[in-house]
Design a protein around this nucleic acid. Sequence first.
DNA 1: AACTGCTCCAACCGCAGTGAA
DNA 2: TTTCACTGCGGTTGGAGCAGT
Length: 258
Amino acid sequence: MGRSPCCEKAHTNKGAWTKEEDQRLISYIRLHGEGCWRSLPKSAGLLRCGKSCRLRWINYLRPDLKRGNFTDEEDELIIKLHSLLGNKWSLIAGRLPGRTDNEIKNYWNTHIKRKLMSRGLDPQTHRPFNATYQPPAPPNDATLRHQSSEIKLTTDSFEDAKCSSGTTEETQPDQHPQKGQLLNLDLAIGPPSQTETRQAWSGNSAESKLERRVAYEFLPVAPSAAAAPEAVCLCCQIGLQRCSSCSNSCNTGLYRYC
DNA sequence: AACTGCTCCAACCGCAGTGAA
DNA sequence: TTTCACTGCGGTTGGAGCAGT
């Protein structure tokens, strides 16, 4: 038995959005807020599927979107994040305020890929084309487990028992960025929004772990393996010896830093 | 002016993750 | 534990616009 379609396709519009549809969607979300995408089209009087409404809002109509060309700084940031995360566009977008995953994905495919190739770098591996190197698979469960164990190597405070156990891949330094490289990432990145934090940092999915890893490595005070980590709460971003605001309610497991 | 090929990006599609029942 | 509805993500597509001939 297949999944029921997300909407009644026979009675929905497809293709480019009209100004009137945009206006209806904006007005409705202003009044009622985001969410309930499935019922939104009917409530807003739109002959669109909920997914289509959500996409239109997120990628085009949201008021906080930054339109216009990407800056060189954004370019470099995207490249750095992509080298770390792979094609995790939503995570990358979470570090670029005002940019959407779709926008970044398109920009990557049309500009940055070419830019990297002109530098003689493989856009997937971020390594020189002529290097004798077997490209790692894009972040799948196995590589995520590997990456999680890498976290364990860079700090003994960030434990993730589920991930670190069962890691059978051999560590081949040439296939992964060095610790120094990871920590050398530009720190001028905005913190994730509350929503992003809630969504990406909770749970124990591979995605969440990856997000935590990025957040961890982008922290202003990255703990070294030798010294005890500075007290920075990863989920609250509060630099206190003990963060009382999250230690009880936080389910990310990151409160160990508090 | 007409045609062709290319680029770019908005939008679609299918699947995975998540939480409620 | 299973099923199902819903949301979000990443890959892909289609068409508008532009440049070259």
